[in-house]
Design a protein around this nucleic acid. Structure first.
Lengths: 212, 212, 212, 212
DNA sequence: CAATAAACGAGACGGTACGTCGAGTCTTCCT
DNA sequence: AGGAAGACTCGACGTACCGTCTCGTTTATTG
């Protein structure tokens, strides 16, 4: 008898497909996360949902924050494609309102998890910044660089500052001001802040004491 | 005449000055918060530090997030003064790097508390937005309005968008990118994003379907 | 001197008849006791029922056990009348099945209170034995003495042993064996144990150095 | 190779021997009980003493009374041996003054626990009567039956009444009258009450309409 | 192809914080 | 002046969750 695998028998036992099982657990994590939110998510609940044992969870992940973030990162994997709509405005709108955008109802839970976990565990923070935020930043950077080549971004603009600005403004409005993230909102932020700043470039001699 | 005991010493037992005890508890909360951070702060520890009973804590606050945020709000009360340094750049730098700024080591803990609690409890979120964020926004708004009168902000600029932008960018860098909030960083954000956007105003006909 | 007293005006406010208020509180105690039992009786509940403050309760009684027992003793006051039905059997039946008998539904709660309190507080135990059990024993003793004069009790019988025996047997059946205390049961105990022992007297000098 | 366990090391961690750990907890319970008494015994103290968590205690027992009584029952298990000294007097003396007798200093605490718990929880009362009191009664019954065969107990005697009588009398003296349970006292109760009643049998047809 | 070692599901466990509740003390307010 | 009202400290309660552990089974690897 086949131990199991693809075949749709849904057999009672199917251990060790190495990455397959892991994916199932992460999916279960996302389900629970979506249902009750980060704070009320328990390892027991995830274990039960995934028909896994808690030992298995702790064997693979350090704890709840790591599990949750791994689930989210897994879910957002492949979201790193650069849109390229032909304009900076279109690219950024696409990047912030597409799949895995901030209007996902789970995003609130997930960002809470991330902020909390990062504050608690610097090592985790480093990993998360490297593996999740880093790629996002890189995508954003590529979009801006491309726009600069088209002349939409001023040559003097410091992209290490402007690049993450849109994310910061939008996340702030979403989480602290409580506004839903709609394409309209993102568009207004682009028109009012990001695009003017990109187009006109920084103020002359910024933060430099020696200027005229 | 003193209503209580002998000497007016405010001795070992001083119940019910109504707001006095509450302030002591909130101070104790801040002490514990500063020592161990939000996640490791326990209600028992606060009660012990304040020489209060847990019942008293729960009589006044709904739980740990509310207590912590109340403590922080109490501590930051009166931070609503408008700086007025004569320029928008100076005002904003003063507002974001002065007392209660983001470089406070407790800020990370507190923001975790706030984001978590807001995600969990919409009622709390509303109260927090009204009583804590609202005044901050108002102060910021006043600074921008004043700058607009001086000609530093374009007449067409939508301050509901630009106003909270600086906070968003800075908080994002602090909490997600892990950068310390220094006056230099705030200055660069001002020069690269906020001030250019304010000076030049929004792109023509933003978010308006009817344009050329 | 009494500040006031007797007059039956039942005026709106009549504090301090000294023993009057106390009686009201004890009545309230009995009401609560009957409703929820000893363990679930709280001082707050008694205070609320009696429209008294907890401070008043603690001013007069040491704590919950004392209050409850005082209430019971107050309620049973005057139950010390000797029945005198003409026979030992009738006297004892009357004594154990009359008012304040063991078939009172509150008796279980009260005895729990008493046993618990006596085990915890030797001082209370002494007071209770002196003021409540003592009189009961005295009444019982009088009944047996009277019966001895009628020839129903053997001259050699030690009433310090036989006197409390009936109470012990009946209470044991009620509380540990869980049987209801009916006149039939008491009658059977009398016929099977108490009366034969009383009639025939003790075994001849067992292990007793001095015997006839 | 053995993964662990079996080897007689009795190592630091030995969960799940099913009844072994339970016994340890019950022993710890008895220790605490003996030290501070029933009322001052706390679940936390037992947990600490047994190096168990409170959750474990509550997983196995419903609450404090059940735990305490289980501990006592466990401790007295096997005390059901019938003495057989050759005489009813000797048997009963042995039964009431031997191991687990009433002169155990813990007995007071334990009986308080039992009476309280029985009054509070009828289900517990039933279990306790069945599993603890029942066997005691059975032993007592056997002693009396054996004595009846030797002619020490009158054929008409109702052992359902006489059987539990000694326990009732002795417990009453111990708990309500506050006397220590000494062999002398038990002997006097036997000579004054139990043995005469057993020897002479019940009064002829008491309160029974149909008799000669 | 059996034997072995690893990984698994299940879930009990020790530990800790939670939020509630009652006891007993205290002060203030009211009459 | 003295009692009602009720807030307060203290501490036990019973629950929930975390992260670790052991148990017995199942799976993949090896001799």
């Amino acid at each position: 008898m086949v131990p199991r695998s693809i075949s749709a028998d849904a057999g009672p036992c199917r251990p060790r497909v190495e990455g397959e099982r892991e994916r199932e657990i992460l999916d279960a994590t996302l389900e629970v996360l979506a249902e009750v939110g980060y704070d009320l998510l328990t390892m027991d609940a995830v274990a039960a949902r995934a028909k896994a044992s808690k030992a298995t969870l702790y064997r693979r992940w350090r704890g709840k924050p790591e599990l949750v973030v791994a689930a989210v990162m897994c879910h957002h994997a492949g979201a790193g494609a650069v849109p390229d709509t032909g304009s900076l405005r279109g690219d950024l709108l696409a990047a912030y309102c597409g799949t895995g955008g901030l209007n996902d109802p789970r995003a609130q839970s997930v960002l809470s998890a991330v902020v909390t976990a990062m504050g608690r565990d610097p090592e985790f923070a480093e990993v998360y910044r490297r593996d999740f935020i880093g790629p996002k930043i890189a995508v954003s950077r590529a979009v801006y660089e491309r726009a600069r080549e088209r002349g939409e971004v001023h040559p003097d603009t410091d992209l290490t500052i402007l690049g993450p600005a849109l994310a910061g403004i939008v996340l702030h409005r979403a989480f602290l001001l409580g506004e839903p993230v709609t394409p309209e909102l993102v568009g207004r932020v682009l028109d009012e802040v990001i695009l003017p700043a990109a187009l006109h470039g920084p103020l002359r001699s910024p933060h430099d004491p020696a200027d005229a």
